[in-house]
């Protein structure tokens, strides 16, 4: 047992590209010295800023993309604000990847309904792009996106491409429109009734802020999607990533560690939690 090979081992890399997406969200593309991160859709890494701290960030790129991975970081706390100062060419270190990925294998052969609100698009994008790159493996694909306003919409170029694909049904909505916006206005829940789906063979993957889950899930249940077919990615403060430090444990009779048992859960696993 060599402490240098400990599970706390730090992996070093470089920021090979970055972009300020919105005033509060910045995107980074990172290449590790050892090349592949080797993650699965839905996992996260701990970003290391020596002297400032560590912070868990979902991986927003698909493992089908080789040689680098991507993170989208909202400046919300001390570490993420400091992280926003990093640019292309800067050194970066991470631990991970951590967490239970989206259940991709059980989804194969089924229809998929993706529902993302706000920053929820970041973890979901790792799965959406995975599905796009393996499109043959899956049935019908519906993507529903919601954001506060058109200018808050993340990955708008890429979203535009999804919208143009013939093998994807796409809809998006904003809470508050600007004059030039021609799309839907309203909450994301308003898009669900319009989706044509076969509940028994549909997996709904929902990622968004905690307040969104309750209402989206209610709509999905109205569509008769089984609880075990509704997949969520929950937000908690993972500090170790290894199911030990306790911070991310969910207030639920089963006390799941969000970092290890999750962050992805099926709704039937976590429906007894006080807050999703």
């Amino acid at each position: 047992m060599d402490i240098n090979n400990s599970n706390w081992r730090i992996r070093r890399g470089k920021i090979i590209d970055s972009k300020q997406m919105t005033p509060s969200e910045k995107w980074f593309e990172i290449a590790l010295d050892e090349k592949e991160l080797d993650h699965e859709p839905g996992q996260f890494v701990q970003v290391e800023l020596f002297g400032v701290g560590e912070v868990p960030i979902s991986i927003c790129s698909s493992p089908t993309k080789k040689g680098s991975f991507e993170l989208t970081v909202r400046a919300a706390g001390r570490v993420t604000r400091e992280m926003h100062k990093l640019e292309k060419g800067d050194f970066i270190a991470i631990r991970g990847p951590f967490g239970r990925p989206f259940p991709v294998k059980t989804m194969v052969g089924n229809d998929l309904l993706f529902v993302a609100g706000g920053l929820g698009i970041a973890p979901l994008r790792s799965l959406i792009n995975y599905v796009m790159d393996n499109r043959r493996e899956f049935g019908k694909v519906d993507i529903l996106l919601g954001s506060k306003s058109p200018k808050d919409m993340l990955f708008s170029d890429e979203i535009g491409k999804w919208g143009k694909r013939l093998d994807v049904n796409f809809a998006c909505t904003v809470d508050k429109a600007e004059p030039e916006w021609k799309g839907n206005v309203g909450l994301i829940t308003s898009l669900i009734p319009g989706v044509n789906l076969n509940p028994e063979r549909t997996y709904a993957v929902v990622v968004g802020p905690p307040v969104m889950y309750k209402f989206v899930i209610a709509e999905l249940l109205k569509k008769n999607i089984p609880e075990r077919h509704i997949v969520l990615s929950l937000e908690r403060h993972m500090k170790c990533g290894m199911g030990k430090c306790g911070h991310c444990q969910i207030d639920h009779p089963k006390n799941y560690y969000c970092c290890k048992d999750g962050p992805t859960f099926t709704y039937d696993e976590v429906k007894d939690a006080k807050k999703l």
Binding site: R74, E235, H237, C245, G246, H247, Q249, D251, K275
Partner: peptide, 22 residues
Amino acid sequence: RLRTWDSCQFETFATVAGGENF
């Protein structure tokens, strides 16, 4: 970097960066 004892009883233990306390 230090690992320090923490407690699930502290007010801030299950709080995420956005401010939500679970």
